[in-house]
Amino acid sequence: MKAYVFPGQGAQFTGMGKELYENSALAKELFEKANDILGFRITDIMFEGTAEELKETKVTQPAVFLHSVILAKTLNIKPDMVAGHSLGEFSALVANGALSFEDGLKLVSQRALAMQKACEMAPSTMAAVLGLDDQIVEEVCAAIDGVVVAANYNCPGQLVISGEFSAVEKACEAMKAAGAKRALLLPVGGAFHSPMMEPAREELAAAIEATTFNTPICPVYQNVIANAVSSADDIKKNLILQLTAPVKWTQSVQQMIKDGATSFTEVGPGKVLVGLVNKIDKEIETISA
């Protein structure tokens, strides 16, 4: 069975999507439609912009989404199962037919703006912790004064924590004391997948509730529960929870393999997810589209 996986924020690079735009009439049409929907020429920033311009959340999220979804459409993929890392879940939901291209892009744009606002409300950040068991990371976070939680379960021995700036800093010191190989702050705008995103979650929830979701052609393994979901109502519910809940990527990939996935194809910019899948299961076939 073929699993298709879609990357999240951080996979962007200058020039992303340009080749697609130039070589495919379908891709060009969809990129131009996206420019109209967003009200600015995101293609100019994707193809010619600086790394700094691309790093703006309101640009990054739609850019990564567009690269992934348009690539998937030009490849005409027929997945047996899909999953996306954080933002990538929206790309996955367009690829399996749960969301239309237009609705997916509108939600991603609203998500980016809501997260940007939440980031500006309080100093918050994220940090990567390497070389500790998940349980130890969770215990260290629980013992810290202030808001800090496990946010991304990326692969065994690689977990990202998220929360208030001072609490994350304290947690990094405590992680090193507990034996972490590294615990380092990440260059991000705020504390994604933590309680600090509650204002953004509320804002996005209203937009998700107002959007039509279809019955998908194949299951999506959602970040929040790391399990197969095929009901439009359940997909909505889990998507609303996603902003303040952890990304259970390790658990999602393990479950997909249990359920019969024999190969994982990463669709979108970069090769981060195939790298993580290889660390979760060395035997599984991985492909970068």
Rank of each mutant, 00 (worst) to 15 (best):
T43H: 03
S162K: 02
Q135I: 06
G131L: 04
V224F: 00
E48P: 00
M121F: 02
V94T: 03
A151I: 05
N152A: 05
D134L: 13
A114S: 14
N238E: 15
F101R: 14
E139M: 00
D44Y: 07
R111N: 06
A122C: 06
V247W: 07
L113K: 12
T50F: 08
E19C: 01
D133K: 14
C155Y: 15
F13V: 10
V229C: 08
A63G: 10
E285T: 15
S252W: 10
A51H: 15
L75G: 00
N227Q: 14
T265K: 04
A98Q: 07
K258M: 12
A118K: 12
G270C: 09
A205K: 13
S230Q: 15
A151H: 09
P62M: 05
A34R: 02
S194Y: 13
A207L: 01
M115E: 03
I45W: 00
V108P: 06
L75H: 06
A289Y: 13
S231I: 07
F40Y: 15
Q158G: 03
P195H: 03
I161E: 10
Q254E: 15
G84W: 01
F264W: 07
E52M: 05
A180E: 06
K176I: 15
E209R: 11
F264K: 12
P246N: 00
A171S: 11
V168R: 05
K73E: 12
A72T: 05
K258E: 14
C155W: 08
V140A: 04
E164W: 06
E22C: 02
T286A: 02
V220F: 06
N154L: 12
Q61T: 02
I42W: 11
K271W: 07
R111W: 09
P79F: 12
K117R: 10
T286F: 01
V267R: 03
S68Y: 08
A72I: 00
I208C: 02
M121D: 13
G270R: 03
G270D: 09
T74S: 04
V82C: 10
Q9D: 04
A178V: 07
A3D: 03
T215N: 06
F264V: 09
